[in-house]
Every structure is written in structure tokens, then in C-alpha cells.
Write a protein that binds this DNA or RNA. Structure first.
Lengths: 215, 215
DNA sequence: ACCTGAACACCGTTCAAGT
DNA sequence: ACCTGAACACCGTTCAAGT
């Protein structure tokens, strides 16, 4: 995380002759792998991400990433973990800023989740896949849990206030999450009309609270 | 589709000597590729499916599939299309068998969808991914549309009867599908307790109709 | 401590050639 | 018409060796 080293010089700046050699110590490789890895992820999905291509883009040998990430999955897991930290920060913030009603808070969470998904679709897909791996690393599970702490609290507090139907709050939260997960999957695969996604999400928040029976 | 040829002899039955050669014409290759392809799909997902491995398992050269499927995606698309045909048949059937109420019909559809997902998790994931491809083949899109005709009709008829909230029926159906898609994604990745999935789905059907506000 | 280069065992795809 | 075998350009992973 420390960025006290001189900003990593791009290989291009060194090529003033055929004999120019790259500096032996790259210095910042781990951060650069994460940055370039996320770029590659968004451009072609987790399956399409090539570790060798990421290494080439940074200008190190294809074996260099191994010092920092044991294999491709380790890089993906690290990207997912960082993603959960950012998503969690977003969700915490919008709950703080939203009004006191559960409906409002859930709608704000829905907007923030969909907004994150729109900005980083492949990352969010990876995050879901990574955390549901049978052998997901504990740090990843913890980051995911922290990210969803705010939504879970919104549900529990809504129940305490009588805004939300009674029942084990984790089960109610899982239902709400299923709806969000489905909406985001549809939005990111073009199943929702792009120009009306916001309106659709707001309508969905109402359906989530009010249900599909007539009112 | 015609199976008038002698049932494809497994290579094993021919190996009574070192000089045994496989029959030149396999005869049934397309069907076998689909069958073995689906087996491989369920054992390792679409990304993990290897065309060469499928060919090896059947006993043909790695280039043989090309006569029947131009590339790996073409095989996956064919598997997805067949999957939609089967799913559609299931959904049609349960709607016929269910009572007249929209709640009952939607719950029956939910159970059938989740049941299909449980039996063929990787196939259902592929089906969703395949049909949302930008360049999905028309037959695949048509098969998907036919599969969801019954749920769409249930929504529209429910609205006509006053069982379901008013609004453009495709938009309401998309919301219901989002919930189902999310529930299935969670069930198939272990996010729902395996022993209580059925109860969870039934509860979810009620939430879908009644919403999360207290009643 | 950090990275390189060669090597291994895989891929998907292409194509001339065989029957 | 249907399939084979060699070839090409990729992968991820491993490991001895270099600085």
C-alpha cells in the first residue's frame, strides 16, 4: 500500500536504444497487477483474463506474478476482496445519508448496488463467484460479510421498528439480496432496457416492499 | 435425430487385438457430443468444458466435432437451446397442473424452476449466459422466449383477473424473473441452507406476492 | 527478495489429406 | 460426407537460475 517508491517507470520511457534494460526490481508489481488485472477483468471477464497478458501489459515476465499471487485464482480473489471493500464503503455511506424509513433505505441500497454493478459489472460477477467458492479464502469471506453488514442492519432495524415483515432477519435479507442479484444480472446482460434501468430499479424497490398482489 | 443406425459401438468392444480400428463413420456423433458435452458441462462449468476432452471421451479425434459444431460456443449454444426446450416443457406442465390462483401458479413455476436448476445447475447458468450474448443465434433466442411464454401468460392473466398488480406485464414478469434468477443463483452456490431450500423457496413465493412490508 | 527463461502439459482452431 | 493428424498460437503452472 505504501507508495513512497518513485512512481513505477513505464518501460517505454527507457527504450532509447536497443540495449536499454528494464530495471530489475519493478517495485510496485503487486499494485500494478491488481490495477491491470481489474482492467483486463472488465474487458473480458474472469475466464477471459490471461495472467500472461496482464504480465505483458505491465512489462514483466509471465512468471513474475507468481511472487505476489500463487496462481490466477489468487489474483482474482484479491480483486474480489478489494471490490467488497469498495462496495461496502458505498453501501455504508448511502445508508447514513438515507432517511429513516426502511423503504427509503432499501431503495438507496438498491440504487447504490446497481450503480456499483453498472460501473464494474465483471468485478461484481467475480465477487459473487469468488465468495461462493467452496475454498474461498477467509479474508474474502470476511470482506464480503462486512460489505453486507449495512443491508443486514437495515433489515433488522426495519423489523424492530415494524417497517418490515417479521422473521429471521438473515432469511429476509437473503430474499432481498436475491432480488437485487437478479436485477443486476439482468441489467448487466442487457435484459433491462438501458435507458430505463433507473426507473425499473425504483419500481422494483416498490415491488420488493409491496409485493405483486394488487394494492 | 434418426437412430436407425446400429447403436454406436463403444471403442472398447472392438479392442480384441492391437490392429482393431475404430469404424470410420461414427454415425451418431452430433448426439453424442451433446450428451457428453452436457456431462462435461455439469462436471466443470462452461469455462471448464474442453472440446478436446469431450472428443476423447467419445473416442473421436479432437477435430471431429468441427463437422457438427463450428466451435466451442456453437456446442454450448446447442446445449443451451436444448435446455430451454426442456425447461419450457416443465414450466408449461406445472402451469397446467396448478390451480387457478396466480399465487399458486407462480409458486408452482418457482418450484419447477428451482427444481430444474437443482438438477442441471451448470446448464441453467449456461442458458442464461448464452441467451444474453450479444450475438446469440436466433434459434436460441426463440427457444428461450418459448420457455418463458407460460410464466408471462400467468402474469398477464393474473393481472386480467385482478390477482396481480397492474402494469406492463413484461415489466412485472421481469421483476419476478429477477427474484427467481437470484434465488437459483444463491441455491446453486450454497448460499441457501441445502436442507431448507424448498421451505425457503415457498417463503420467497409469498414474499414475492405480499412484499416485505408487514401484513 | 524478486524476477527471468525454458519447459511441460494442456487448450481452441485451422487445414490438407484420407476414405 | 465425415473424420484424421499435424500444425499454430495461445494458455497456466513449475522451477532452476540469475541479480
Amino acid at each position: 500500500m505504501k507508495t513512497m517508491l518513485p512512481a513505477s517507470t513505464s518501460p517505454g520511457t527507457l527504450v532509447d536504444g536497443m540495449t536499454a534494460t528494464r530495471p530489475y526490481h519493478h517495485g510496485n508489481l503487486r499494485e500494478e497487477l491488481l490495477r491491470e488485472g481489474e482492467r483486463a477483468l472488465e474487458s473480458g471477464g474472469a475466464a477471459g483474463l490471461s495472467l500472461r497478458e496482464v504480465a505483458r501489459a505491465i512489462g514483466v515476465s509471465h512468471a513474475a506474478p507468481r511472487r505476489h499471487f500463487a496462481d490466477k485464482q489468487a489474483l482474482l480473489d484479491a480483486l474480489a476482496e478489494a471490490g467488497f471493500a469498495r462496495l461496502g464503503a458505498d453501501l455504508d455511506r448511502v445508508v447514513d445519508e438515507a432517511g429513516p424509513g426502511s423503504g427509503e433505505q432499501l431503495a438507496a441500497l438498491a440504487r447504490a448496488y446497481v450503480s456499483f454493478a453498472g460501473a464494474h459489472p465483471a468485478l461484481l460477477e467475480l465477487m459473487f463467484a469468488a465468495k461462493t467458492q467452496a475454498d474461498a479464502p477467509p479474508q474474502l469471506r470476511d470482506a464480503a460479510e462486512r460489505a453486507f453488514a449495512a443491508p443486514l442492519a437495515v433489515i433488522a432495524e426495519g423489523q424492530a421498528r415494524g417497517d418490515i415483515v417479521a422473521g429471521y432477519h438473515e432469511r429476509v435479507a437473503k430474499f432481498a439480496f436475491a432480488t437485487m442479484h437478479g436485477l443486476v444480472a439482468m441489467a448487466n446482460t442487457g435484459m433491462l432496457p438501458a435507458e430505463a434501468t433507473d426507473a425499473f430499479i425504483d419500481e422494483a424497490s416498490v415491488h420488493l416492499m409491496q409485493g405483486l398482489r394488487p394494492r
